[in-house]
Amino acid sequence: MPVYRQTYSHYEGSYLPRSLAWTLIARRGILHAWRKKWFRFVLIACLFPFLVMVMRFYLAANLDVLNYFGFDPGSVRDILDIDITFYYRFLIMQSFACFIMVILTGSDLIASDRRTKALTLYLSKPITRLDYLFGKASIALFFLYLVQMIPCLTLVFLYAFFNEDWGYITGNIQLIFRIILLSHIYIVPLTALILAISSMTRSRVTATVMFCVVFFVPETFVNILRALMDESWMNPDYFTLFSLGRILEQLSPIIFKQEAPFDVHWIWYALVLSVIVGLCGLILNKQIRAVDVVK
């Protein structure tokens, strides 16, 4: 008797609840990305500034250590001083890592499923389109949190740990809230945008190029228009509403009570950002289907 006749049998156990399906997609995507050597290398490179900052925090809390290396602790005290703007600058610095990671992890998330027609397979299982989307988004979100929000929050905890001052955390709840908010201002729109673009193509390269075009081309036009526009006619800063990069640039300092670069109320930027995320949602709703309907 062939082997297969002895093996296949009916399943008599129970099935897990469907609400967990998105976690399977997320877990598989994260492991799939982690298996690639080059990806691990880029991820560690993106976390390099964090490692440097950990050393800085250690030194700031243990200035005496500098004596061993022949430095005068008093001369570097000001350089190593840590205040709220430090975290702001760190988040802005890590936003570049976010940009890299969102392209690396997000550009092929849905494009590869469209290329290999795996979308039909996914949706033929007892999962909803929302499960699929949430699972895929979680992959990009995981790595973006890993390079921006989590390191920054870790630094807050490390400051308290190195200085043995746990009151630092309770006394800076607002700081933690600001870090989380600013991270999401970057992470959510970038994830929504890359997923929407990835869902419109079958190629990782095309998705990457489209993402860069959407991000950088409006920025270039905005810069040109601002340079050319006569300020007496209208405030040229309004053109920055058309550039995602400029929107993020305007909203970030406001969250950390820093001076905003453009002379337009932040509410407009928040509104445009919401519209961008909403449009991405509409695109995803249209694209994530088991059947391509040609009208």
Partner: peptide, 28 residues
């Protein structure tokens, strides 16, 4: 469902692919 199109999930071995499909259907 066995679709007509040539469809698969790239980068997976056959056993990973089939077990992943099983998990998506609710198998432990």
């Amino acid at each position: 469902y066995m679709p007509e199109e040539d469809t698969y999930m790239p980068g997976m071995t056959a056993v990973e692919f089939v077990s992943y499909c099983g998990m998506l259907c609710g198998l432990p």
